[in-house]
Design a protein around this nucleic acid. Structure first.
Lengths: 206, 206
DNA sequence: CTCGAAAATGAACATTGTTCAAGACGAATC
DNA sequence: GATTCGTCTTGAACAATGTTCATTTTCGAG
């Protein structure tokens, strides 16, 4: 066998285990929160040693960040799947998709937003960029709805709206300090988007 | 000396040290985040033993929750100081006061919203009630601005607005993933409130 | 089959929340 | 002032958990 095949066989195994470790870590975070994630548990569940987890991810933060990276990728994929036809419908779709993702993966999303790096190490640029990308998805439909506004202004508006929606959803899904009852959240969120757009001068959706 | 005076003298000392411990813990959280809080550091800084911290607060969570309680009290006091004269001005004042508090005490506010209890112990009811009280402060001015709406509806609206403002501020002040540049935040937040009120049918502020 | 580099291992270590037996303290009583 | 007794304080020891690294194992190349 040639080198490429040998390496790819080895790599395949390595990648397979890496994926397993990530999946296990994700399950811990998703089911009991980031606080419940333990290196020993992950290693044991994957049937390997603690050291191997460190070989793969460098340190504990590395494992968390890897899961977070995949979380934001999944979120972005879901948001990008919203069709771009009618801008008003698209905005509602984006808000609703965000709510859906947050509902199904509350702990994963919390881990993304609440995780703090050890020591003051900088937050990884690539994750930051991916989050900004997700934020930016509101921009295009808003530009279409507000053609007369300065695009820079609309960029800020879209970030404001995204942040507002994020706040409504994240507080709404927090079981403690219930801001808005979850069962009403979907409907109310749509109403919120409509209201805000109306305030921006966009006539209410059909 | 009689019993009462003896006890109050002892109590005074105890309360004094309790206040010192809280103040030290608050300073750690405020300056480097909840993650930097350590029982040993607090005890050493207060010149007492680890065990005394446990006698005073039960456990680590108890210390954190005590600081959080005072944080939400300080926040509520600040929000309640906004005069109730003009409802529109009051709403702007509330949003601005929240932003001001969040700016000055970003880490304390984060500790309040992001702290998770150990084990799944329930979140303390009194803190929850205090946060709900703070949320409710938007209710009265909104009722005055929307006299024709069902009060229950307005209650939900006010929670939505509070959550939205919270999201804008908390993401805006997060240095990583900067949603809205902090220097613009104040102005933009006011604009956001105006826009949303306009969407609700309230004519823009004078 | 042998060799060597890379990977895996897990015991040992460092940090930090927690407990608790022993001691110190102080108020009431004589 | 001495005694007593309950309370508070102490800090060593423990437990949980992230981290390191010398040793062992693995596996492909020659």
């Amino acid at each position: 066998m040639n080198i490429v095949q040998d390496e790819s066989r080895r790599d395949r195994k390595k990648l397979q285990r890496r994926a397993l470790l990530i999946e296990i870590a994700r399950r811990y975070i998703a089911s009991k929160g980031l606080i419940s994630l333990r290196v020993r548990d992950v290693a044991e569940a994957a049937g390997c040693s603690i050291g191997s987890v460190y070989n793969e991810f460098g340190d504990f933060d590395g494992l968390i960040l890897t899961v977070n990276r995949e979380t934001v990728q999944a979120l972005t994929a879901r948001l990008k799947a919203i069709p771009a036809g009618d801008p008003l419908r698209q905005l509602h779709g984006l808000a609703d998709a965000y709510l859906g993702f947050a509902t199904e993966h509350a702990n994963l999303l919390r881990a993304l937003f609440e995780h703090r790096m050890e020591d003051d190490r900088p937050f990884p640029d690539d994750i930051l960029a991916m989050v900004m990308d997700a934020f930016a998805l509101m921009h295009a439909p808003l530009v279409r709805l507000l053609p007369d506004r300065d695009p820079d202004d609309v960029a800020l508006l879209s970030r404001m709206m995204f942040s507002a929606v994020h706040g409504i959803i994240s507080l709404g899904l927090e079981e403690r300090m219930v801001a808005v009852p979850p069962e009403m959240l979907r409907e109310r969120l749509a109403e919120f988007v409509d209201t805000h757009l109306a305030g921006l001068g966009v006539s209410r959706s059909a």
